[in-house]
Structures are given as C-alpha cells and as structure tokens.
C-alpha cells in the first residue's frame, strides 16, 4: 500500500484530497447517495488496481473524474431497469440550503449539459480540459456549454450565470 504513489501522493492522501470531487461527480450523475456510494468506491478501487502512472496532480484529478463518470455510466446502464427508492420518494440528495436551488436546477438538466456545467463552473476546468476529460470535441463542449447555460437559466430563473 505504501509503495503505490500517484503524482507524489499516497493512496490515502489521494482519497482524502479528491473524495469531494468524486462524490460530486457521482451525485450529479446518479442523483442519489446509495448509488453514488457504489460508484465512489468503485472509482477508488479502480485507482488502486490500475495504478495509473500519473506525475501531475491535475492529471490525477482529471483521471478520477473520468473514471467516476465511466463508473456512473456503467452503473446506470446496468441498473436502468430498476428505480431507486430515493428517486421514488423524491428525497434523493440533501444539499445544503444555500446550494439547494442550483443543485436542483442542475439535476433537471440533461446529462450532457450537467456534466459540462459542473466541470466548468464547479471544478473550474477550461473548455479544452473538459473536452479532454469527456473525450469530446472542444467545439461540442462550447456548444453544449452555451445551451446548458440557457436551459439552466430557464429552469433556475436567474440571470447571473
């Protein structure tokens, strides 16, 4: 365990440092805690088993986000025929009060807009970086970012985006 290092960080340090990023991605994708926990754990299991050779922390973060998105996609694909109890009872995720509205508005968006807006505004990634993480064309990212803003504006009703 102590022998494995990722960008100069031990495995435990990586978990402590990037758990918030991974859990945000999983919650934004899956909209409930129970499913997000599985993907959260799977993401770090993958990190430990794959032991990617990463020398840069920014790359490590991007790698974790990419893996978390893939884990969520796999989870959705495997469980698309089942409905979670949390979704049925409409008490999926408890956000802090100050973030409740924007989180709720984000979750009303389609996945492709949600991911881009999250990465752009929350994780502060640039368009090219988002394109690299999501493995899409930067122009597509720009277009979806613009459309996502408009849709969020319609849902949220604000004008400060």
């Amino acid at each position: 365990m102590a022998d494995i290092e990722f960008a100069g960080l031990s495995y435990e340090q990586v978990v402590n440092k990037y758990n918030q990023t991974v859990v945000s991605v999983c919650i934004m994708r899956l909209k409930n805690w129970a499913d997000a926990e599985d993907c959260f754990q799977n993401t770090f299991i993958r990190l430990y088993q794959k032991t990617p050779k990463i020398n840069d922390e920014s790359h490590l973060k991007a790698w974790l986000i990419r893996v978390a998105i893939n884990e969520c996609n796999n989870y959705i694909r495997k469980n698309k025929k089942t409905l979670s109890f949390e979704e049925q009872t409409n008490c999926a995720v408890e956000f802090p009060l100050d973030s409740l509205d924007v989180s709720w508005a984000l979750m009303q968006l389609e996945t492709k807009y949600r991911d881009i807006l999250f990465l752009y505004y929350v994780e502060r990634y640039k368009v090219d970086e988002i394109a690299e993480i999501l493995q899409k064309n930067p122009n597509t990212i720009k277009t979806n970012l613009k459309r996502g803003r408009e849709k969020l504006k319609q849902i949220y009703g604000g004008d400060g985006i």
Binding site: F95, G158, G160
Partner: peptide
C-alpha cells in the same frame, strides 16, 4: 433576481 452560486456545490462532501 437570483444569483447562481456554483461554489455552494463544492460543499458537497462524502
């Protein structure tokens, strides 16, 4: 008018 504060999403902790 509402002001969207995305930083509030960062308070989401595991």
């Amino acid at each position: 008018m509402k002001k969207v504060n995305f930083d509030s999403l960062k308070s989401l902790e595991a």
